[in-house]
Amino acid sequence: MIQVFNLQKMYNGVNVLDIPELTISQGESFGLVGNNGAGKTTLFRLILDLVEASNGHVEIENQKVARNDRWKAIVGSFLDEGFLIDYLTPEEYFSFVGRLYHKSKGDIAEFMESMQDFFNGEITGTQKLIRDFSKGNQKKIGITAALLGDPKILILDEPFTALDPSTQIRLKRFLNDLQEKTGIAMLISSHDLNHITEVCKRIVVLEKGLVVKDIKTNTETLKELESYFAV
């Protein structure tokens, strides 16, 4: 579904990402871990065509993503607050995004209803603008909007940070359910090794732009990762 060919990204002559080959297939839950500056966000931005690759390219469903609009219909993503239109209320934002994905008012209302558990009663029904919500609640709004277009691929950058404990647990359960039901491909990065091993069936470790580990999650994975990152 997602294929990476010979991908390199350089800033000022320094190679920050170098992935010769990587394939993520349909229905896979793909976890990305690594320390700060390992290139996680850069990889996601390259997949989403937000930065230009120095070499190589990314393909989604056998089409290059660069300067192409096709993939946008099947990819839902949330990397940071730069994905939110912060002067709208959550409802206005959802309906704006929903209409971009050709959803009717009824579809959007139904979808929001199904998310009520995740919202925990904090998101909808107020006249508050997104910019006045806390970081955690903004994250909830962003993740919800990413799911709004029934994507085949979901890309989330550190979805667990800034969420309160209950919401972290809820999000984990939600993502696992979603994957079981829809067979969506998920790309998730995280600093939290616990969460990522619980949600993802395949985990890739990046270090200084290179893939150093690519493992199928099993009962030993958490220990393996912990010992890898231990200093």
Binding site: D69, G82, L84
Partner: peptide
């Protein structure tokens, strides 16, 4: 500019 990344990844063609 504040939500440019979001605009570029949502389902809307550049045209």
């Amino acid at each position: 500019s504040a939500y440019f990344d979001g605009m570029m990844t949502k389902n809307i063609t550049i045209r």
